[in-house]
Write a protein that binds this DNA or RNA. Sequence first.
DNA 1: CCCGGAACCTGAAGGC
DNA 2: TGCCTTCAGGTTCCGG
Length: 269
Amino acid sequence: MPELPEVETIKNDLEPLIKNSVIDRVEFLWNKTLRGSSPETFNREVAGQRINNLSRRGKYLIIMLDNGKMLLVHFKMTGSFLIGKQEGEPPKHTRAIVYLKDGRGLFFIDPRKFGRFQLVNPGDSPLSELGIEPLSSGFTRQRLGELLSKRKSPIKITLLDQGLIAGIGNMYADEALFLAGIHPLRRAEDISHVEITRLHDAIRHVLLEAIKNKGASIVNYFRPSGETGSAHSHFKVAHRKGVCTACPGAVQRIVIRGRGTYFCPSCQH
DNA sequence: CCCGGAACCTGAAGGC
DNA sequence: TGCCTTCAGGTTCCGG
């Protein structure tokens, strides 16, 4: 499930490989992968465009084109990129292929078909709806405190709200709450100053560690080279069963607003 | 406007 | 062993 660290890894891996490459055309094998325009209109705008740079905002990968347009890619649950030669059958579950002029293909692989491509103008895009980047300098403990105040939802749900903080998904919300010792069902506005400090540190720590480990390959996610990440092997609670890594108690799994939530009842209050 | 739940999807896992 | 059901979850959409 590509969240901030996975998308950051894809961006870091891909940028040196495709920066300054020129797009020949983009083929959609599953039409709903393209959002907001028809494949014909889309191709009229991207064909022949040079890729200026790649960046990331929240869970979006941003491919900047020479004409000023941004190609946004959202990987949702099971999207990944694989780069290789164009010849032969595309890999299984390929939903779109970005053909580059140099003969390489960028394959968008997405078994569940939730992932989306969208061509937008800067300033006129879903990016403007996103909240603060948790790894930016603006994300201070004071700022986190402001975001949590007057929020009556469970803290877990608040952390997943992309309009408040951009990039945290189910796995890293569980990991951050475990590290901070906070029960996922606590009301956000009830979190104390001391706990907010711990949570702020925990969020940044789990995201930075996961980026160092090139993302978590729990299901489907892999890097553009085909390699997996190893962040999941460092998880303390997310997707774990059995004994807690920090105490003799057992990790519990509950469902909060439809999302599987892992936590340790004796470590998190 | 806010909240909660369904829908989108398919492969994997679990139950009988 | 095999068929059937359930589950996974990021985001959008819709109803209350």
